[in-house]
């Protein structure tokens, strides 16, 4: 069996995954996305950076921190019939918050009210329709970067002017969510295949609760409601190895906020007691058997 891990560089997660493979007697080939040099028409007989032909791989686990590199690599590898985690279709939906919202809406999975507009004046109208406070989010982005909570029209117009002037075309798509007054925390649940294996609360005095921004992780019991919602969300985006972010609305309803396709989990195994990298590897190996 030959497994490849595609990375931008080695972070704690990749180290844990490599160790988990090694504990199963598999030495994965670690490949850097900076070394990729695909001949699109030559197919999978061409050599990967490891020196082996791409065709030799039973599975490639995509762990690039660079979303664009990871997505294009998945698109190419899947076009050659090489199994990957996650699949391109899933990753491309998750990488785009707007496409994620569409997928959740199609599956009738509850999410915060969201509007999309492209023109500055229409965006102000969209905000008035949505109501303040609201949150601007770039359609592509992570770690809580470039999120902006706006409480009134003056602030909104400032954000829009800055994005129009300083941002590239990606920032001229205005994806706006209704701000959810959550109880100082959100929930991150980990879905692998058809199981919600564990979840954490991410608690922070700041409205952005990402652990990358200082949110503190603690165990969140996976209730039947969380399990059901997360599995529906995962299915909506195509399934795989996913981290589902949930918000608790003031009325108690759980809403799916985001779905992440190259999840970080370094802070989550300890509070949950679940060996997340081992679970990921077990799932990966099961997918090899499924696709072989």
């Amino acid at each position: 069996m030959r497994i490849g891990i595609l990375i931008t560089h080695v972070r704690a997660e990749e180290k844990l995954l490599i160790s988990a493979f090694q504990e199963r007697g598999i030495e994965p080939d670690v490949m850097l996305d900076r070394d990729l040099n695909f001949d699109i028409t030559a197919g999978p007989d061409q050599l990967a950076p490891s020196g082996f032909p791409w065709r030799a791989y039973d599975l490639i686990m995509e762990r690039s921190v660079s979303t664009s590199r990871g997505l294009y690599a998945l698109a190419i590898l899947n076009s050659w019939g090489i199994p990957t985690i996650n699949r391109y279709e899933t990753a491309s939906v998750c990488a785009d918050k707007l496409r994620t919202s569409i997928a959740l809406a199609q599956a009738q999975v509850p999410q915060p009210a969201v509007r999309v507009a492209f023109d500055p004046e229409t965006t102000v109208q969209a905000l008035n329709d949505l109501g303040y406070p609201a949150v601007f989010k770039p359609v592509t982005g992570s770690w809580g970067r470039l999120l902006a909570r706006v409480n009134d029209q003056d602030t909104a117009e400032s954000i829009i002017e800055h994005r129009q002037t300083l941002g590239d075309y990606n920032h001229h798509t205005y994806y706006i969510q209704k701000y959810i007054d959550k109880p100082g925390r959100d929930i991150r649940a980990f879905v692998i295949g058809d199981r919600t294996i564990c979840a954490i609360y991410r608690t922070s005095p700041h409205w952005i609760t990402n652990t990358a921004r200082g949110g503190q992780a603690s165990n969140c019991p996976v209730t039947p409601e969380i399990d059901d919602l997360c599995l529906r969300a995962a299915q909506a985006v195509g399934g795989g190895v996913l981290a589902i972010d949930l918000l608790e609305a003031p009325d108690g309803q759980l809403l799916v906020n985001e779905v992440n396709h190259t999840m970080e989990f370094r802070n989550s195994s300890a509070p949950t007691g679940v060996n997340i990298p081992a679970e990921v590897v077990t799932y990966a190996l099961s997918q090899v058997r499924v696709t072989a």
Binding site: V65, T67, S142
Partner: peptide, 23 residues
Amino acid sequence: LEIISLNPVELDLAPEVEEDWGE
């Protein structure tokens, strides 16, 4: 920093975070 090689050990500045980096 990024560990460019282990034998011999060589370090370089890690690449700057780009806009599309994340999970």
